[in-house]
Design a protein around this nucleic acid. Structure first.
Ligand SMILES: NC(=O)c1ccc[n+]([C@@H]2O[C@H](COP(=O)([O-])OP(=O)(O)OC[C@H]3O[C@@H](n4cnc5c(N)ncnc54)[C@H](O)[C@@H]3O)[C@@H](O)[C@H]2O)c1
Ligand SMILES: NC(=O)c1ccc[n+]([C@@H]2O[C@H](COP(=O)([O-])OP(=O)(O)OC[C@H]3O[C@@H](n4cnc5c(N)ncnc54)[C@H](O)[C@@H]3O)[C@@H](O)[C@H]2O)c1
Lengths: 213, 213
DNA sequence: TTCACAATGTTAATTTATTAACAATTTCTT
DNA sequence: AAGAAATTGTTAATAAATTAACATTGTGAA
């Protein structure tokens, strides 16, 4: 797929491609070779049109009577989302959430890997938690540069978030995923994504409330 | 605020209201009484216009030279997002993520509370983890009805997600927040929100990749 | 063969979300 | 007191995302 077109894929399409791939990998593992747009749509709770549109945007085309070739589609999505060399991420804050994340990631995608975890509490820095090397936070800059880590996942206590962000940016990280409820500031060249469970929960609560009235 | 208008607030506005409140509570705790739209915007990394628009939509109006009254705004957002009686939620799956969630929620919003947690592993069902009562999954329906729980948060192993969803729906839950990577199906009257960290991470990776080329 | 069917691919229309523009208003300064 | 500055509230414009519409095309049945 053309590099320039790739750059202009809608944000939402990128998110869905990630989800399509997950679903496709599952189907593939079960021996399925082809899939229709409406089947993908069903799994993801969206419309078949949207699936077809996304697939059109990445320039793939299926066959009329068999749908999309699962292997080919997985490979194409890989060429869009992954890089040949692989992208390396690290977790900062080895608490409940940080551990859940590392644990969850273990044995998932190979092109995107969590290669290090940091904490300022020496007790949390036990070598090789779930195959991920752990370090004291003071080593962050050195390790990030040494290993070529480009993404930081922040799971420290909220108060520590700004300070940790600064360290990550200084170390040369290119993207940050912040799971603390404290919004952080990054320079323009760093991509930032924030998520808070309470917002999601309050959203669900709102719709539960308004739908039941 | 008018009930009917409330029902038609944009989804994104609802999400932001939750975030505004969090920021406002923090400012309030520090003794601040008023705030300008651009101050809120700065915290949330959005534009001041958007903040003013959201606030306009909920029918609040600030004063010209002092901005918005923090207490009043918090109260109004509360009237929109909360219910008088409070909304009760439960966590299903007391693993790493479930515990992180319960722990995180402890001592947060009073109108929205996690009042129970379930698991099928008897070892995980230790009474009163972080002030939250824990039960065996078989008790789900009984407890949900007894306590009037309306939201279920799913943090079980992916394979168990569909089965747990069914149980929640059967028990009469009105909203589900699914954190497993396995999309689940719910009837139309149940509001569903799904989130997966890998999608977020892959999105960050994509933008890191495309921005650096 | 021919027709109906069930898919895809794509353009057009619609809806939702964001941003721009600007009038109105209050306060401060001179 | 007059004017400048800063901020709100709101309408209009733009952009992003979704959905509808439909032409196109293999496939299998009549
Ligand atoms: N976004 C969400 O959905 C969500 C859900 C649960 C928790 N959280 C948030 O995620 C964060 C982690 O939650 P948790 O339950 O794992 O908390 P936790 O207390 O178990 O873990 C926090 C870890 O960060 C470490 N830490 C603190 N300050 C540090 C610093 N300056 N440098 C390096 N490490 C430091 C601590 O030693 C600890 O190991 C919290 O901010 C919490 O509010 C977010
Ligand atoms: N969405 C995310 O961002 C994210 C992040 C990390 C983990 N996860 C997912 O969240 C889930 C939980 O992750 P974790 O690290 O806490 O896993 P975990 O294995 O630590 O916890 C899973 C828990 O679910 C319980 N369980 C399993 N089957 C059950 C059933 N049928 N009924 C009741 N309880 C059952 C287990 O006993 C265990 O306590 C997994 O699906 C994981 O993939 C999601």
């Amino acid at each position: 797929m053309d590099k320039n077109k790739m750059k202009h894929l809608p944000h939402k399409t990128i998110e869905r491609l990630s989800q399509y791939r997950r679903a496709l990998l599952l189907c593939h593992a079960q021996g399925q070779t082809h899939i229709f747009s409406h089947e993908i749509a069903k799994i993801q709770h969206i419309t078949a049109v949207q699936v077809r549109r996304d697939i059109m945007l990445i320039g793939y085309t299926g066959t009329l009577r068999k749908g999309y070739n699962i292997e080919e589609l997985i490979a194409l999505i890989g060429r869009i989302l992954d890089t040949d060399e692989g992208i390396k991420a690290c977790v900062v804050g080895i608490g409940n959430l940080g551990r859940a994340f590392i644990n969850y990631f273990k044995g998932k995608r190979t092109k995107l890997s969590i290669v290090a975890a940091f904490d300022n509490n020496p007790n949390k820095v036990v070598k090789n938690f779930c195959n991920t090397e752990t370090f004291h936070i003071d080593e962050l800059e050195r390790i990030v540069k040494q290993k070529g880590i480009s993404i930081g996942i922040i799971t420290v206590s909220p108060e520590a978030a700004p300070e940790v962000t600064e360290k990550l940016v200084k170390a040369g990280i290119k993207g940050i995923l912040n799971y603390t409820p404290k919004p952080v500031n990054v320079p323009a060249h760093v991509y930032l994504e924030e998520y808070d469970m309470i917002t999601s929960l309050e959203k669900v609560a709102f719709f539960v409330k308004t739908h039941s009235e």
